[in-house]
């Protein structure tokens, strides 16, 4: 128990200790996961709307694929992105053929980490959005259409109606990447000052036997997650007096 208490004290000390390296790691974590989340929402919310609101042949299969994607192992995503982006990978060859010059290195950079995290979080956002949109009755969209709504206006109304569920989708997407270590480690490489994020830092400290420091970093990560998720929940609950 002693070790947890001292880790807790250490985490507070670290957080307010003015350690520039630590702040940089926290900042990068938030930046990578934040940008990835925004991109995942751009993909997942429209995709979830279309799958959730339309009836088409093979829809069941598409839903099953999305649900499988929600459980995608980050390590496998990391491995795949690694292989695609590596010097012997297909994208490298394609770039060379098209541009006539070598592609700048993407592996072990922040963009590579973002690519991996977008792949991990997009199915999460899509899957939860899909369920939220499907729970909005089709008649409500018919009603909107009958009052003169275009397809886009109909979609905007549906997303507003499903707002709580879509906030849950965003929270699920964020939760899936802020705590993820397998993929960012593999494609980012945990380079200090460049691609080191909270999770890879914890992994590193653990590997070096600095359990106390690793645990303190872990507590900081959980604390940050709590603050952000709490914000999502507030947004989600706002306007509650108009809820069903």
């Amino acid at each position: 128990m002693e070790v947890f208490w001292s880790a807790f004290v250490d985490s507070i000390k670290l957080l307010f200790g003015g350690d520039a390296a630590l702040y940089e790691i926290i900042g990068l974590s938030l930046r990578v996961s934040g940008i990835s989340l925004v991109l995942a929402m751009c993909i997942g919310v429209p995709l979830g709307y279309v799958i959730g609101s339309r009836r088409f042949p093979g829809r069941g299969l598409v839903v099953a694929i999305v649900n499988t994607g929600m459980g995608l192992p980050p390590v496998v995503v990391g491995l795949t992105v690694y292989m695609l982006l590596s010097r012997s990978g297909p994208i490298w060859d394609l770039y060379l053929t098209l541009m006539g010059q070598e592609m700048p290195r993407v592996l072990y950079t922040v963009p590579a980490m973002i690519v991996a995290q977008v792949i991990i979080s997009s199915p999460l956002v899509t899957g939860v959005t899909l369920a939220a949109v499907a729970s909005v009755p089709a008649e409500l969209r018919l009603q909107a259409r009958s009052l003169g709504a275009s397809k886009l206006q109909e979609a905007i109304l549906t997303v507003k109606e499903a707002r709580r569920g879509i906030m849950a989708a965003v929270a699920a997407g964020f939760g899936g990447i802020i705590s993820e270590v397998g993929a960012v480690n593999m494609v980012g490489g945990n380079i200090a000052g460049k691609t080191r994020v909270m999770t890879t830092a914890i992994q590193l400290e653990t590997g070096q036997g600095n359990f106390g420091l690793a645990l303190a970093l872990g507590l900081i990560l959980i604390g940050i997650s709590f603050v952000i998720m709490n914000g999502f929940t507030r947004v989600q609950q706002s306007g509650g007096r108009y809820e069903r």
Binding site: L140, S146, E161, Y242
Partner: peptide, 29 residues
Amino acid sequence: RMMMAAVFQNPYLFKGTVSENVAYGLRLR
């Protein structure tokens, strides 16, 4: 379609105030 408006069996009101609901079609226009 803008020349018509419908009322269905179930009212399916949108989340929000009475006023926001009634004004929905006017906003679209």
